[in-house]
Design a protein around this nucleic acid. Sequence first.
DNA 1: TTTCGTGGTTGACGTGGATCAACGGAGGGC
DNA 2: GCCCTCCGTTGATCCACGTCAACCACGAAA
Lengths: 248, 248
Amino acid sequence: MQVKATVPITVADIKSACSQCNLLELCLPFGMSETEISRLDELVGTRRKIKRQQHLYRAGDPFEAIYAIRIGWFKTDVVLEDGREQVTGFQMTGEMLGLDGISTETHSCNAVALEDSEVCVIAYDKLEELSRVVLGLQHQFHKVMSREIVRDHGVMMLLGSMRAEERLAAFLLNLSQRLTARGFSPAEFHLRMTRDEIGSYLGLKLETVSRAFSKFQEEGIIAVQQKHVRIVDIDKLHKLIQHPVALR
Amino acid sequence: MQVKATVPITVADIKSACSQCNLLELCLPFGMSETEISRLDELVGTRRKIKRQQHLYRAGDPFEAIYAIRIGWFKTDVVLEDGREQVTGFQMTGEMLGLDGISTETHSCNAVALEDSEVCVIAYDKLEELSRVVLGLQHQFHKVMSREIVRDHGVMMLLGSMRAEERLAAFLLNLSQRLTARGFSPAEFHLRMTRDEIGSYLGLKLETVSRAFSKFQEEGIIAVQQKHVRIVDIDKLHKLIQHPVALR
DNA sequence: TTTCGTGGTTGACGTGGATCAACGGAGGGC
DNA sequence: GCCCTCCGTTGATCCACGTCAACCACGAAA
């Protein structure tokens, strides 16, 4: 194992998460001043590695912390008594998990790693405490929660008012946009989730998702092979949503 | 909804909103101490009356305040460029509106009064400021936002995984439960929204909503007449969700 | 290398809810 | 009072997506 240059790894490095982290502009510290961010370092107590398919938390677990994803992908889902599962979101680097737990002090959904991942553990009581003194933190945390609410409304729109192909188009555009913000290619990526999980998220059956992928491919909009997707014609993708196939 | 006896309105009543308000245990001050609540009175600057069908705010409006409903009913919705509308929620007395605006400092949805209504205007900068010193306020505000996220996940479940009759059953049970919490009859109420609006919320067409109402009536689960609903057999309503008609 | 299991694709067919259409009833405005 | 508009109901028909089933691709384990 080689270490970059000759900087010794100290306890400080491990502890001082935020100020050293390259996810600044994607994560909770976004928009905060340098001095504010340096105060955040006391916030992230631990990091936690989660292997693929393992739970970060489960519905019913007592709520203690929220999590910022450092590396990897997660899905969150809720499950009905009869076993029906609804995926409520896919989260990637820099995004927050666990906000659902604040309301009842118990998590109300499951968070599962889609690949080997790592999260920063942010003790909630510490966050409340610190956000009383670090103004930027309070503000940014509220924004993060609000953004989640807005995102959820978008998903409702998708589930309540769009047809299968529009939903998939919206899904792909959303992924592309979030990957771009993280410096990845906007046009080419690997899906971390199965067709079944995409279907659950989009309110469709996996066969319908698969057929929509194939249709897009036939029409020269994307190139798919299993989990690998390349967006060939992003305009067409946009138009699919703006001008639905059937005028209704 | 019945109106409480007519108490003369004084200036004190108007200014000292929270400590005098009978919505304490439903609204933002929930769980706060008496001294904490008395500090909230400086928070609610104004009240605002909104007539039926009028907007409290519109998508695109600059965000300045959140709102607590004192009297009345609202719906929130998002509208796509092509005109498709998705109702994202129905809000009643004691519930909060405007949380969507925090993330971008611009409202992302419309809030429309379903009947003549009145809200408490809570300036957001004041809220942030005060929640730094009043611990209970900070905590409660976070809970309110988190609860909204959890509620949204429930709607996703509904839209993504339930069939038409289950959706309507879940909707009616949810209304019943919220009305009960406000001291109204759990079994008999007036809907403030049209079939079309219910349909938009539930991801169904108004005809489907109407048919589901009729079906429930035939089966002796409810009695409906236009907007008046009486739940006759609440157990059957619960079972409709727990044991969906078709085993799948 | 083969086998096995999981995940993805594709076709044939069924159906729940959308669409189209006609009508009836309630309530507000005058 | 009457009109007019909006809203709700119900029936007939259609179609987007679900269901069922067969098969294929890929990666891990043996």
